[in-house]
Design a protein around this nucleic acid. Structure first.
Lengths: 213, 213
DNA sequence: CACCGAATTGACCAAGTGGTCAACGGGAAT
DNA sequence: ATTCCCGTTGACCACTTGGTCAATTCGGTG
């Protein structure tokens, strides 16, 4: 499928991949321009479409590459032992932040792909993402003590609340710090404190009183 | 500014506005085509750009129109008296649902404009939206009894948690029911029950025990 | 050297974009 | 009847897009 491209020497491959990642991350699939990519990569139009049969295939390849890179990156950060789901979530958050800091374009491309993908690819992309996160789940939920939840709180519901809330909070921070992402890392402690405050409220609502500490 | 357009007879104005709303709601600003609009409205290219100096101005006008229509619509639904913030939020949710059901395209255009606006307009659009929601706040928070919150829970923090969570939940439902929005209204009771379940968890975490009912 | 096949180029294409403008048509005023 | 005005038309413009393909270049083989 992509053998023409795969057989290239690493340097050239990397230059092209980097150009693609930059452009797709910056503009999203639709607004990304293959002309901008070939210019940035220093190659000709013809050869790009020789390697990839069209823009969609190119995007697919790049996205898969990014996904692989990200999951590999995740594996590098083992989760510490804990029975507390809130602890786990906050750890995951820290890992995500670290990865976003180290590979901003890959993460951006990825989020862009989930938020506004080419319509015909939407379900495929979501499927792949779901598959990857499902695979991570056993690790993530390992050893969690669900008995900490008070009576009347279904653990699955509670986890959904936490997931949704943390997701929304993350998006809010992204919006607040849009264009000045570096300050996000400067304000790390302040944000972490805020985050803990929110978690305390949720924890209080979900755990039985003798588990709240 | 728009007098050429404003002076048109109502029928023609409406036909053009409707065409714009349809196109912008469906495709978003960038992908919306002025050609599609003139075709749908049955007018010529020249005259559209005689009424509006360019695509951006057209979008601005249409967006303002939609915002006005929506705020007017909101005013039609007075909030019932209650001291309970959760009650208020769930009422607001019901109102939003009703409006989305009645004016799907206007609401969609609106959400599209907030989610992925033309970059140069982003801050203007957000500003307008913030202004409108700020104006609604006194009504919304009128008579709310903040003493229901237990010690250690700052009301402002609590409200932020609720807002973020409800927002995320709403988006989740929108995603789940994408392309089959009618089922959303069929499943109304089920969704409402789910929603109440979530709210109970939050309420338990935020209210002091003697206020939870 | 000649030859071949693969890699690579960039001029070119059709389609679509937002936007312009000379020309047209018809109603009102003279 | 003539003039004028102005709303309206649609052919046209410059530009960008993803994608093609004949032509060239290059490395290796005999």
């Amino acid at each position: 499928m992509y053998e023409n491209f795969e057989n290239l020497n690493e340097d050239k491959k990397k230059k092209i991949l980097d150009a693609c990642i930059l452009e797709f991350a910056d503009k999203g699939y639709d607004k990304a321009s293959t002309n901008a990519i070939i210019k940035e990569a220093g190659i000709s139009k013809g050869i790009l479409f020789h390697y990839f049969k069209n823009k969609k295939a190119l995007f697919c390849y790049v996205l898969d590459y990014c996904m692989l890179a990200m999951t590999e990156e995740f594996m590098k950060y083992p989760l510490t032992e804990t029975k507390d789901i809130f602890q786990r979530f906050s750890e995951l958050g820290v890992i995500k932040l670290k990865i976003a800091q180290e590979y901003p374009y890959i993460v951006k491309l990825f989020m862009e792909a989930l938020a506004s993908p080419p319509e015909e690819m939407r379900s495929d992309i979501e499927k792949k993402y779901l598959k990857a996160s499902k695979e991570y789940m056993p690790t993530f939920f390992k050893d969690i003590d669900y008995s900490k939840f008070r009576g009347g709180v279904e653990p699955s519901k509670a986890i959904e609340v936490i997931t949704l809330f943390i997701g929304a909070l993350g998006e809010k921070y992204l919006k607040d710090y849009k264009g000045k992402e570096h300050e996000l890392f400067q304000d790390y402690d302040k944000i972490m404190a805020e985050y803990m405050g929110y978690m305390e409220i949720l924890k209080y609502g979900m755990y039985s009183l003798d588990s709240t500490n």
